[in-house]
């Protein structure tokens, strides 16, 4: 009965075996290369850990005025005011609302940490030129939008 098997079938079996062998080889190769790519750079920015460093805001004193004069913070946000005195006279950053008081030498730079703050307006002055040297930190209520801010 076995001899009765057509030679065609043998051919098919060889072809089939070859096909399977090649396919599995391809799969192994493909799998290997796939594995390689997985070992390479891990997906980096899927969940970014929050940056806990406070935001740094540059405030320039020039001609006895603050620039910018208004600083807007998110409620609860902590920032560093990086105050640059470009005048040739000493200035004192003072705010009894922010509870900060710091001398900035002529041409000097001083860092002042501010916040976290509740919503509100916190005035600050350059005490030695208080008539012009005025600014404020604004902490808007949540929901306070840009339109209201521009008004």
């Amino acid at each position: 009965m076995n001899e009765k098997l057509p030679p065609m079938k043998d051919n098919t079996a060889v072809l089939f075996t070859t096909f399977v062998a090649v396919l599995s080889l391809l799969l192994v190769l493909a799998g290997k290369s796939f594995a390689d790519t997985e070992v390479l750079p891990p997906p980096k920015v899927i969940v970014q850990s929050p940056d806990t460093r406070p935001r740094s805001i540059i405030v320039i004193i020039k001609d006895h005025r603050f620039e910018p004069e208004q600083i807007t913070l998110i409620p609860g946000e902590k920032v560093i005011l990086h105050i640059v005195n470009k005048d040739d006279s000493v200035e004192e950053f003072e705010s009894r609302y922010l509870k900060r008081e710091k001398i900035i030498p002529a041409g000097g730079v001083v860092d002042i940490a501010v916040g976290p703050l509740k919503p509100g307006v916190y005035d600050f002055i350059g005490e030695y030129h208080a008539d012009t040297c005025q600014g404020r930190v604004v902490v808007p209520q949540p929901g306070w939008n840009a339109y209201q801010q521009s008004r």
Partner: peptide, 12 residues
């Protein structure tokens, strides 16, 4: 602070 203030006044 008073001295610094005075210094600024004289300077400017």
């Amino acid at each position: 602070e008073v001295v610094l203030f005075l210094e600024g006044l004289i300077q400017s």
